[in-house]
Design a protein around this nucleic acid. Sequence first.
DNA 1: GAAACTCCTTGATTCAGATCAAACGCGCGA
DNA 2: TCGCGCGTTTGATCTGAATCAAGGAGTTTC
Lengths: 248, 248
Amino acid sequence: MHNSLTAEISQDCGDCPIRHRAVCARCEADELETLDNIKYYRAYEAGQTILWSGDRMEFVGSVVRGVASLTQTMEDGRTQMVGLLLPSDFVGRPGRETAAYDVVATTDIVMCCFRKKPFEDMMARTPHIAQRLLEMTLDELDAAREWMLVLGRKTAREKIASLLSIIARRDATLNLRSGEGPLEFDLPLTREAMADYLGLTLETVSRQINALKRDGVIELKGKRHVTVPDFDRLSEEAGDDSDGGMLS
Amino acid sequence: MHNSLTAEISQDCGDCPIRHRAVCARCEADELETLDNIKYYRAYEAGQTILWSGDRMEFVGSVVRGVASLTQTMEDGRTQMVGLLLPSDFVGRPGRETAAYDVVATTDIVMCCFRKKPFEDMMARTPHIAQRLLEMTLDELDAAREWMLVLGRKTAREKIASLLSIIARRDATLNLRSGEGPLEFDLPLTREAMADYLGLTLETVSRQINALKRDGVIELKGKRHVTVPDFDRLSEEAGDDSDGGMLS
DNA sequence: GAAACTCCTTGATTCAGATCAAACGCGCGA
DNA sequence: TCGCGCGTTTGATCTGAATCAAGGAGTTTC
């Protein structure tokens, strides 16, 4: 997976808590000087709304640390998360004036931002960036469509397993821990946030997580720390094809 | 809405059953000559699979007439439609080797195709096209995310109303019939296909359609021909914001 | 260290939609 | 004209997840 556009552009983020180069091996970034003066960091606390749907967008950027979510809300309060933004994920849509969804910090979060206008100017000058952006957007589209299957056709148990599987996989690739041994990670989401992502209620999320625990599919330390002794077993519970899901 | 890329490129499709210019007012298409020899039409019958998930893609193109769907299937046979392709919609992902989903002709369908390689070459030469493609991909992403809300949080009745609303809207813009009077259109989908799109069973689809009919939200002539006496009423049933949904 | 949070669990009950089952209607080919 | 097949409707029953309702467990606050 080759996912961090800002990494590719800004190359050597000496002050970034995450080493972007580790995320993106292809860094070249001849644009570094041009960009440095338009790059900045932003921090938000868990629960803060980063951007309201309909707001004018002033920046694009990527998540450095923490988790954010894209959510949609109906007038009567029903909400659906339509995207989960993990470290290295890109936020913002060049060419669009306003945000289409609420962007909410799910945990405390640090973002690496670029002012939108100069970023777009640069995009126009360097087709290579535009191409990367298209590719990333296609990835997002694939993810959204995969999630449509989850939402439309999977049972509560399968939904939970699918979510855990995605987070585990993302966490593994970020930490370069691949293949060997049991996976471990902290859930970056409350039960309610998981419910919003999965189209369930928080009670059902709680019950199904504990059911997976009872059945030995996962282990829990506290309420958030998850150990996955057998990733294939988890994938199976998620109803995924049993190829390990590592293509793309 | 400005949706047909092939229209923009090929401008004057004299032999197209649909007048592309009507769809896309911005046609300029200096590439016409270059492209004409790589453009061709394909027709499929209802039920035919145009492309299997995993297949090598040889062309990109857009739907000229008829309806196709993108579907995903689990091993146990559960299927979820992840995209509905109506006339003027674009198919194919430049830069990707293989199809990510099954593409199935839902009705008899005619597609206007371009061989993929030359199309991509041209894309690389003309940034304007790449930009359009990004914009279209973002539109698709928005549509997919809107659908996530439908799948995750709406009731069966709201789901049906949402689908009818989308089809009615698309049909209205294609036929340049906007605003005035009752909308009329033929459902291009079987009850089963609707169920696959909405994450329901065909029985529930049937029941809810007839419920909407009983309640006067829609009228039916035969099983497929729908009249919408009051579009706002339908939007309300769909749980949409009451702004008429005509922004973008 | 008690009150007031927020987040999570667990139980009892209800209900929307799935499932199972049968039959209708209509176009089509023999 | 008869069957035949497909898409659709309709009814009866079942069930997975929602809803309603308490509590518990870990914090921050004063």
